[in-house]
Design a protein around this nucleic acid. Structure first.
Lengths: 340, 340
DNA sequence: GCAATTTTGATTTACGTACCTCAAGAATTG
DNA sequence: CAATTCTTGAGGTACGTAAATCAAAATTGC
C-alpha cells in the first residue's frame, strides 16, 4: 500500500496539518520541522496522489490554442487533434478554446495574444509566424504570467517555455539522407520547393537539407528553394516550370505545404522517374505514396504535438518543469508500406 | 461545470442511491427506472469521474509481464520500459511483476503461465514464442478469466485479446521498399538474415520483404533467409561467409537480432558499399547508423508497446473494449539524421 | 385486500488530499 | 518577566464516487 499523508505525519511525529503545510509550501513551519517532514517523505517514498489532489482542488486548466485557418490539410488535421483533446477535457481537467487566425497573418496572432486575460487563461499554444511582433506579443503575455508554448513552428527569439514540434533542421537532413540514397549514386539536380522562408520550420528544413546533401552526396545539386506561400496552384506551376526548364532534375524535395499542387504537377508528366520526398501525411500525400508518385513522406504526429503541449502547459501551471527529453516529437518517415 | 451523480439524480427525479445502482449495474432497479436514469445521463452528458471513482474503489490492477532474458539489447530495452512503467505504478494504480524466462524456451513460458493465480493477477503480457504449447497455455489462462496480451511477437492461433506490436508483414514490406529504392535501379542480390523462423514476427517480416521485392524490384534477388537464432556470432559468420561466396550481393536485410554480429562482419570488410537495413534501435545499431555502416533501421517503440499493453489490460479488466485503432504501434524508420 | 417481495430513498462512511479555523504551545522580543 | 509573535495540533468540510445499511414505499401474487 502506498503511503499517505497520514503515514507521513506519523513517521515524522508531527500533525497532519503540519505535513499539509510542508507539502503545499504554506508558511508558518520552522525549517527544522520542514526537514523532519521531508525526511519522512523520502524515507517512505511518498508521492502525492495527483487525482485525489486534483479532486480536492477542483483544478481546471483553461488553455487557448491559436492555429491558422485556411485549407492547409495539415493545419486542419492539427485542429482535429485539438478537438479530440477537447473531448477528453473532463478527464484531463482542461478547458480548451481554439482561436483561428488567417494564415501568415502575424498581426492577427498579435491581436489574439494581446486580448487574452491572464486571469482566465493559464496557458497558450500557438502555431507561430516568426516575426518580431509576434515574439514581442508572446513576451508580453509571458510577462503577465501566462505560459506559452509554440506548436509546429517555433519562435526562437521569444520567451516561450517550450516548442512542441520536430527538430526541423534534422527533418531537412533526413530528407537529404533519403533523397541521396534514393538517387543511388546517380548525379543530378534536386528541386527544393518551400512555402515561405519567413516560417522558421521551412528555413530550418532547407538548411538541414542543403547541409547534408552538400556534405554527403556531392553528385547532387540543389535547385531553389522556390517559394510558393504554401499555395497548391503556385507549387504546381513552379514544379512544372522547373521540370520543363531543367532536364537534369532527378529528385524533388517539397518541404512545405500545397502538396496537392505537387501531385498535380507530377501526374501531368509521366516521362521521368523522379525521387520525391514531401512533408506531412494527409489524405493527398497518402494517396500519392500509394500511387507511387511520392517515394517517402516525412511526418510530424500532430496528435503527439497537441498532447505534448497540453502536458507541458499543465505541468508548468503546477510549477513543475517539463522533461524536455520525454516531450521530444519524432521525425516519422513513411513509405507506402508503413503508412499508419 | 461537468455534471455529477447528484445532478443525474435530480434530473432523473430519483435518489442518489438509485443512480449509483444503475451506474454500477447493481441489481434491484426496475427497467423503467434504469431507462429514466440513462436518459438523464445522456441528456446531461454525464461521464464518470474516473479518478474519483478509482479513489473510492481503491482499485489496483495486478499485471505480469513475461519477457525473455539473455543479452538481446531490444529485450533489455523492453524490460527497462516495463521498469519505467513500474515507477509510474502508484499513479496508474498498477502492480507490475516481471517474469524473465530463457529465450526461445517455450516450456519455461508455459510453466510461468500455468503458475499464475487468477485471483492474484488480472492481466498478463508476454513476448510469445509461437508454439502450440504456449498457445494452449495462454488459452488455459484466458479460460481462468485472466486477460492476456502478446507483446512484440504474436500468437495468432490463441485466445489472446490483443497484440501489442507492429504489423511485421508491413515491416518487411517497408524494408523492401527502402532497400529497393536504396539500390536505385541497380540489379543484384539481397542477403536476408533472420533469427528464427519459429518466431512469428520474423516469419512475417521475411514474407513481406519477399513479396514487395519480387513485385516492385525485379532486378533484385533474395539470398536466404539465413537463420542465426539471434546470436551475434552466428550472424557475423553467416554474413561474412555469404559476402565471400557471392559477389553479387549489394544489400543486406537483417530482420532479427544479433545486430552486433552484423556490425562486426561489415566493419571487417571495406571494399563493397552495401545498402543495409536492420531492425530495432539499440546502442549498437545507433552507432552503426552514425558510422554509415547501416543505411536505415526499422524500429518498434517498445515504450509505446508496454504502455499500450497496460492500457489494454486495464481497460479489459474494467470490461471496456480497447480501441484497436488507437493502440496501433507504428513502424518507425530511422536514418542517422532522424535518430531520437 | 393482505402479506410477501421488490424497488427506492435517505443517510452514512470511506478514499487521499486541500484548505480552513481555532486554540494551545513554543520561541522570541523588549 | 510578560507580551508578542511564531509554530503546531486538533478538528472539520469538501471534492465525486463507491458501497453499505435500514426504512419506507411501491408492486406483485394469491
Amino acid at each position: 500500500m502506498r503511503p499517505t499523508v497520514h503515514d507521513i505525519a506519523a513517521e515524522a511525529g508531527v500533525s497532519l496539518a503540519t505535513v499539509d503545510r510542508v507539502l503545499n509550501a504554506r508558511p508558518g513551519v520552522r525549517q527544522k520541522t520542514v526537514d523532519k517532514v521531508e525526511a519522512a517523505v523520502h524515507r517512505l517514498g511518498y508521492v502525492r496522489d495527483v487525482s485525489a489532489a486534483n479532486l480536492a482542488k477542483r483544478r481546471v486548466y483553461p488553455l487557448v490554442f491559436i492555429v491558422p485557418g485556411g485549407p492547409n490539410s495539415f493545419m486542419r488535421g492539427l485542429e482535429a487533434e485539438i478537438r479530440a483533446a477537447m473531448q477528453r477535457s473532463p478527464v484531463e481537467r482542461t478547458s480548451i478554446r481554439i482561436e483561428t487566425v488567417p494564415p501568415f497573418d502575424a498581426k492577427a496572432i498579435v491581436r489574439v495574444l494581446d486580448s487574452l486575460d491572464p486571469a482566465e487563461v493559464t496557458g497558450v499554444a500557438l502555431v507561430a509566424t516568426d516575426t518580431p511582433e509576434v515574439a514581442a506579443a508572446v513576451d508580453r503575455l509571458v510577462g503577465k504570467g501566462v505560459h506559452v508554448a509554440t506548436l509546429v513552428s517555433d519562435l526562437p527569439g521569444s520567451q516561450r517555455l517550450h516548442f512542441c514540434g520536430i527538430d526541423n533542421l534534422a527533418a531537412g537532413r533526413t530528407a537529404a539522407g533519403l533523397i541521396g540514397r534514393f538517387c543511388g549514386g546517380r548525379a543530378g539536380k534536386v528541386l527544393v520547393v518551400a512555402g515561405s522562408m519567413k516560417l522558421s520550420d521551412h528555413m530550418d528544413r532547407a538548411s538541414g537539407f542543403a547541409e547534408v546533401l552538400n556534405a554527403e552526396f556531392p553528385g547532387l545539386e540543389i535547385v531553389g528553394p522556390v517559394e510558393t506561400n504554401d499555395e497548391a496552384d503556385r507549387v504546381s506551376e513552379a514544379v512544372t516550370t522547373a521540370l520543363k526548364a531543367d532536364n537534369g532534375i532527378i529528385a524533388i524535395y517539397s518541404l512545405g505545404a500545397g502538396t496537392r499542387g505537387l501531385i498535380e504537377a507530377l501526374s501531368g508528366q509521366e516521362q521521368r522517374k523522379l525521387a520525391v520526398v514531401a512533408h506531412e501525411v494527409t489524405e493527398h500525400s497518402r494517396q500519392a505514396l500509394t500511387d507511387g508518385l511520392f517515394d517517402a513522406v516525412i511526418n510530424q504526429d500532430c496528435g503527439h504535438e497537441v498532447r505534448s503541449a497540453i502536458r507541458v502547459l499543465k505541468a508548468r501551471a503546477d510549477g513543475l518543469v517539463p522533461l524536455s527529453a520525454q516531450e521530444r516529437i519524432r521525425i516519422d518517415i513513411f513509405l507506402k508500406d508503413n503508412l499508419p
